[in-house]
Amino acid sequence: MADLVGNRMYSCYKCRNLVSRHDDIVSKGFQATSGRAFLFSHAINIVEGPKENRHLITGLHTVADVFCSDCGETLGWKYERAYDESQKYKEGKVVLENFKIVKENW
């Protein structure tokens, strides 16, 4: 956790638990049911729910919802598997919904 000091971070909007670094953003062009979302290469202090297949805008994916490890708030989802070859870059990455995260150290 010491290596995170001074970095621009994102945290859970509800309890301020740190969940990712600004430097880990892969894309800001994602869409969730409730609005804009960011794709992150890494996330911390999250818990994954069960894996399930979902038909998303870009096709069928196996995903797991992700929750804040402190308060349990749903923050987004993790891509476990992409079935379309052009979507494989998403595998292992996490989408966090914009209105569920807040900026820290900006």
Rank of each mutant, 00 (worst) to 15 (best):
V66W: 04
L75F: 01
I46V: 15
Y89N: 12
C68N: 09
C71S: 03
E85D: 13
V95D: 10
V66F: 01
E104N: 09
D3G: 15
F67E: 05
E48R: 06
E97F: 03
Y13W: 11
V19E: 00
L39N: 09
E48P: 02
D84T: 05
D3Y: 11
R81D: 11
L60W: 07
E91L: 04
D24H: 09
G72K: 15
I101R: 08
G59N: 12
G59C: 05
M9V: 10
E91S: 08
T62E: 12
K88E: 08
W106C: 10
Y10L: 03
E73L: 07
V63P: 09
C15E: 08
Q87I: 05
H22T: 10
R54L: 03
K51S: 14
G72E: 13
Y10W: 09
M9D: 06
I25K: 08
D84V: 09
L56H: 04
R54C: 02
V5R: 14
K90T: 07
E73P: 01
C15G: 07
Y89R: 06
N45G: 13
L60Q: 07
T33P: 10
A43I: 07
L4W: 12
L75V: 00
I44L: 14
I25S: 06
L56A: 01
L96I: 02
K28P: 02
C15R: 01
T58D: 10
N98Q: 05
C12Y: 01
C68W: 03
Y83R: 11
N45R: 07
D65C: 10
N98V: 14
R16W: 09
R81Q: 13
F30A: 06
N98G: 09
N53R: 15
V63I: 15
Y89D: 11
S20N: 03
F30V: 00
E91D: 01
P50N: 14
T58N: 06
D65I: 11
S34Y: 06
E97Q: 09
D3F: 12
L56E: 01
V66H: 00
V102D: 14
S27D: 15
F40S: 07
V102G: 09
K78C: 02
V102C: 05
E104H: 07
V63C: 04
N105Y: 08
T62Y: 00
R16P: 09
E91Y: 09
V19A: 03
C15N: 07
K103N: 13
G72Q: 06
F40V: 13
T58L: 12
F99P: 03
E73R: 08
A37M: 05
K103L: 13
V66D: 05
R36Q: 12
Y83K: 06
F99T: 10
V5Y: 04
V94A: 02
E52H: 04
H42G: 05
V47L: 14
F67Y: 13
R36F: 08
V63A: 02
W106Q: 13
N53P: 10
A32E: 11
A64M: 04
M1P: 03
D70G: 06
